[in-house]
Simulated scan of single mutants.
Amino acid sequence: MVKQKTIPELEAEKAENERKITQLQHKKQQLENRITYYEKGDRRKRAHHLITRGAAIESVAPLTKVFSETEFYAFAEKVFSLPEIKGLLMQAINEHNIAEQKER
Rank of each mutant, 00 (worst) to 15 (best):
Q4W: 13
S59F: 04
L82H: 14
T6L: 06
F80Y: 12
L24I: 06
T70H: 08
M90K: 15
I85T: 08
A99H: 14
M90G: 09
K28S: 05
I21W: 02
G41A: 02
I7M: 06
K5F: 10
E95F: 01
P62H: 02
F80V: 11
Q91A: 12
I35L: 08
T70E: 13
E16M: 07
N17H: 07
A12K: 01
E39Q: 10
E100R: 15
Q4V: 06
R19S: 09
Y73W: 10
A76H: 09
I98V: 12
Q25G: 04
K102Q: 11
R104A: 14
F72E: 04
H96W: 15
A99G: 13
I85W: 02
I7E: 11
I21G: 01
K27C: 09
E84H: 01
H48W: 08
G87C: 09
K102T: 06
H26Y: 11
I98T: 10
S68T: 05
L10D: 03
E13T: 01
G41K: 03
F75V: 03
K86R: 09
K5L: 14
A76C: 11
I93P: 05
Q30G: 04
Q4I: 04
I57N: 00
S81R: 14
E84C: 00
T52S: 11
K20A: 09
T6V: 07
L63D: 14
A92H: 09
Q29T: 05
A61S: 11
F80C: 14
E100A: 13
K14V: 01
Q30H: 13
L31G: 03
Q23R: 00
I7L: 08
L63Q: 15
P8M: 00
T64K: 03
R53S: 09
E9V: 02
S81E: 15
R53I: 12
K28W: 07
N94R: 15
A61N: 10
E11S: 05
E18I: 05
P83V: 08
K40L: 14
A55H: 09
N33V: 06
E103P: 02
M1Y: 07
Q4H: 13
K78E: 14
P8S: 01
